[in-house]
Design a protein around this nucleic acid. Sequence first.
DNA 1: CGGAATCCGCTCGGATACTG
DNA 2: CAGTATCCGAGCGGATTCCG
Lengths: 125, 125
Amino acid sequence: MAEAAWDEDLCTMLDVLDRISGKWAVSILLRTSSGPVRFTELERSLRGISRRMLTLNLRNLERDGLIVRTVYPTVPPKVEYTATEMARELYGSLAGLTSWAVRHRDTVAAAREAYDQRRHIDVPP
Amino acid sequence: MAEAAWDEDLCTMLDVLDRISGKWAVSILLRTSSGPVRFTELERSLRGISRRMLTLNLRNLERDGLIVRTVYPTVPPKVEYTATEMARELYGSLAGLTSWAVRHRDTVAAAREAYDQRRHIDVPP
DNA sequence: CGGAATCCGCTCGGATACTG
DNA sequence: CAGTATCCGAGCGGATTCCG
């Protein structure tokens, strides 16, 4: 039975990968993991993100239950975003990936350089 | 010092995420992890992939040193792809992600459904 | 067999302007 | 303040064709 389930689990994992890929999702999760953060605060925190992309990412993460959106009906409006426990767990399981990335950073860089040089030989024009 | 390094490590990890995101990269790594695989074999294995995308993915993975490309100068030509040890390690550290995905699969699905229903109330074209 | 080249639609993502 | 709406370019990804 452990045999027939592995590609279903693979699919499930690929879904997660898709969910957290994209330039900003992980950074948003990280920033909201340590407590409620307001929209504008996030916008400044993640330097370079556009309003549109911030909104889209927040909506997607909220939809998947990874962050909670809290609206305070004040004037001016105040909205806070907080990562859920589930999201913090997810962030934790990304540690393995970080570890791999750091350990092999140099090897990957070297492989790239070598590959590019090989390719540059036959493309002079 | 552990303070100043965290966002550099985050960047490194985000690079890896980008590298393995996309529809096919992980599946290719998995398929080539258990031994050399030929191009056409891969093409059949990953049902749905186009020639173009397979080639592009293979090139990128090769460039980063995650797979090795071996050409046998025979007629007809024979080319084999094999995941490197580094790649198998990477695949291993994805296990944490898989575990998370499986554990929270239902919760995420429920969150989505709830979110969508909330949204469908006020959008009856 | 193992690609490379071309075409083409779609989505991602940035910039800007407008609203409650 | 916290969005929504709109426009636009760039790149992903599929289908097909051509080549050694």
